[in-house]
């Protein structure tokens, strides 16, 4: 119970997000209207994706400094769940774009697809797609872990400017683009949201991120069980030697 409190927290926060997100009054703004509730889902997916990619990046660094196979399993699974959340972010974004940019603003699909933030997200998904292709091309486990850790670190560092710097420099359909107000990459939580929406939005980010971590830990535990014969654990090894 003491170890699993965060799973209960995740569950509670998500119940709160969904119930409050759909029921509590939202400001009635032109074009987005009630679709603003998608904020609690769409934006949180990207937050959670980015956090999981950062965790994967950290485990890749840990792998290179320790060469413990367990770190490779962590890095791989966090990247996988992160990519999945990225795809979900796209799906929720499609629904949102359909009811705002396409129908109400009469944007062409071409201009929506050229959105700098969509490009950044596409680059992220392509990079992690390449990461999994690279992993698949090895038969040697140690080599796979090492080379893909190198690629993961390099790709993540290169991904950073394309998500955090370039979108701040160019115009965009998303709120918060340089043309409209401040250069925040997706939204300006202080300015664009009212107090009630922030009360739901921040817990929602935490809830979805914890859910992503939860899914990743389940996948990791399955793989640790599958590979338990080949994982060399120095601590355990010493323990058996003593006996």
């Amino acid at each position: 119970m003491r170890k699993n409190w965060w799973k209960i927290l995740s569950f509670a926060l998500l119940v709160y997000t969904i119930v409050a997100g759909f029921l509590i009054r939202v400001p009635n703004l032109p074009i987005i209207h009630e679709s603003i509730r998608n904020l609690y889902f769409h934006v949180c997916m990207w937050f959670a994706m980015m956090i999981l990619f950062i965790i994967s990046f950290v485990y890749s660094i840990k792998y290179l400094s320790s060469t413990s196979y367990i770190n490779d399993i962590y890095a791989r699974n966090f990247a996988a769940v992160g990519s999945f959340l990225g795809i979900l972010g796209y799906c929720t974004g499609i629904i949102w774009a359909n009811y705002t940019w396409l129908t109400d603003q009469n944007q062409s699909i071409g201009s929506v697809l050229k959105e700098p933030k969509l490009l950044g997200a596409a680059i992220a998904l392509l990079i992690y797609g390449a990461y999994f292709v690279l992993r698949g091309s090895f038969t040697d486990m140690d080599k796979r872990a090492r080379i893909s850790a190198v690629y993961n670190i390099f790709a993540f560092v290169m991904l950073f400017p394309s998500i955090w710097i370039i979108p701040r420099m160019v115009g965009s359909l998303h709120p918060g683009a340089p043309g409209s107000d401040t250069g925040n990459p997706a939204l300006n939580a202080q300015k664009d949201l009212d107090a009630t929406m922030r009360m739901i939005f921040y817990p929602a980010v935490i809830g979805w991120t914890l859910l992503g971590v939860w899914i990743a830990t389940l996948k990791i535990r399955i793989q640790l069980l599958q590979d338990k014969d080949i994982i060399y654990d120095p601590v355990k090894e010493i323990g058996t030697a003593d006996r």
């Binding site: 680059i123 392509l126 990079i127 292709v133 690279l134 091309s137 080599k143 690629y151 390099f154």
Partner: peptide
Amino acid sequence: IAAKAQQNAALIAIMGFPIILPQLL
């Protein structure tokens, strides 16, 4: 990186294109 994985030229393109994309734009 690709030299370490056996199948190479295609892998270079797959890995490199998304990374070079921001710079190319």
